[in-house]
Design a protein around this nucleic acid. Structure first.
Lengths: 250, 250
DNA sequence: CGGTTCGTTGAGGAGCCTCAACGTGAGTGG
DNA sequence: CCACTCACGTTGAGGCTCCTCAACGAACCG
């Protein structure tokens, strides 16, 4: 009962960063820790449904997700929306704004999300002074690329049922690695999010999810998806799961 | 028997790198040029249809495409294949092998392709000694991510006709920026490649491409796609085109 | 308590799929 | 030199997947 960190705290010191407690993240040495502490400008907390970044914006900031769930998406002019990926603790958000000048996608919160805020201007200093952290940022970008590759394979070549199973298994595995679940594994998404991720209509998504529920793989309750059988989902998707590896974060 | 390369690895000096002639690539300063020259181990040339990298392989090398066209793809166990993106001059190939330990996708040549070969081991030196080049690598990775975002939007939310128009417009714009075309803009792909990129069957792809041809946007000839009206394709796709920017390469 | 979001279900139709067949051109071997 | 094969593009037929339209119940909220 002691370690629930206060929601009103402005700045969690990096030395006591809650992400560090998770062994799936790599350790910092003291020098790195020192730099990141100075690199961090503050914290930001947003409500479910809030937009963290919008397509076209020139943000001066870069974020790391401390807690909560969100998603990245793009939309066509007529409103058709595609969810590209989900953002979860440890993920770096807004790097594209640094590279392309402006954001090419939007980011929205699914649950309450808290983020570390970094100043974009200092990024070059990071590259100049801390090669290991620079490498970590490349690592994170390449990892995101790898995930997008898998999503592309899924949307392009899997059936609706396989796609749905893959998506939920993917989110389940990520959440598990981040220790986001207690006894119940609940993913805070609506069926509309699933539809917009899989490139399906909401009606067909509903019918597809029903099939997964009938197989006792998932249960849909109170605007969340509860995973009953992660291995069953992976089997239904024909997906091996992500490799287990220690990952960096900033 | 001095080299394992399929063809003679004569070496173009980096100072006279043909990519440098193109103003859309950023300039190196002499120090950077010096390092890259030493970083470069040799050259590799492969024939059309040849596999440059295979999923699962642990390659000790990293490549930059000097000339030619290729593509990255993933496949499901039953053979369904998804083309993820195309590789063209200036593109970095094999970075994922450095990050994830092994390649998560395969790369195949569409035309004769020549590549610069770099030693993966020296990558950390690049990060330690040349922050600007390290930043460039991150830039390239983030740019690839941006393109995958667009492809995902396309496959997920565009109709078959829009998707086809987008793909060809995309390849056309990239080729144009790289000055790969003379009077005729010919893209060296088959309809099977288009199908595997768009997530469609070959039959439906053929009928869709016919529609684009009937609108005088493209012409299919001798296993290549000739672009007649790039702006018309972009309009048909509802795509703005890529921003014009100077890009780095290694 | 009316409005809104979310999940659910049915009906009918469009888009895309598979199967099947065929023409062409390039290569290959008898 | 010609029959053969193979890769590629093309076309038709029929059917399944997924779509849109429409309606409704439940939970939540101002």
């Amino acid at each position: 009962m002691t370690t629930a960190w206060p929601s009103h705290s402005f700045k969690t010191p990096c030395e006591r960063c809650p992400l560090r407690a998770n062994p799936s993240f790599r350790e910092f040495n003291s020098e790195e820790l020192d730099f990141v502490s100075k690199f961090k400008k503050g914290e930001l907390t947003v409500d479910p449904g809030a937009t963290i970044l919008v397509e076209g914006a020139h943000s001066a900031h870069l974020f790391t997700v401390l807690s909560g769930w969100g998603f990245r998406y793009k939309a066509l002019e007529d409103g058709r929306r595609q969810i590209l990926n989900y953002v979860m603790p440890g993920d770096l958000v807004g790097l594209q704004g640094t590279i392309a000048g402006e954001m090419q996608h939007s980011v929205e919160a699914l649950s309450p999300v808290s983020l570390c805020v970094f100043e974009r201007d200092k990024l070059m200093t990071l590259y100049n002074k801390h090669a290991s952290l620079a490498f970590d940022i490349t690592w994170i970008a390449a990892q995101e690329e790898r995930i997008l590759d898998e999503h592309l394979l899924s949307i392009g070549r899997r059936t609706a049922l396989e796609r749905a199973a893959y998506l939920i298994a993917f989110l389940f595995e990520r959440g598990k690695a981040l220790k986001l679940f207690n006894s119940h594994a609940s993913i805070p998404i609506t069926q509309q999010h699933v539809a917009d991720t899989l490139g399906l209509s909401i009606v067909h998504t509903n019918k597809t999810l029903k099939k997964l529920a009938n197989r006792n793989l998932i249960r849909w309750q109170e605007r969340t998806c509860e995973v009953l059988d992660g291995d069953g989902l992976m089997a239904a998707a024909g997906w091996e799961g992500p490799g287990k590896k220690v990952r960096p974060f900033i």
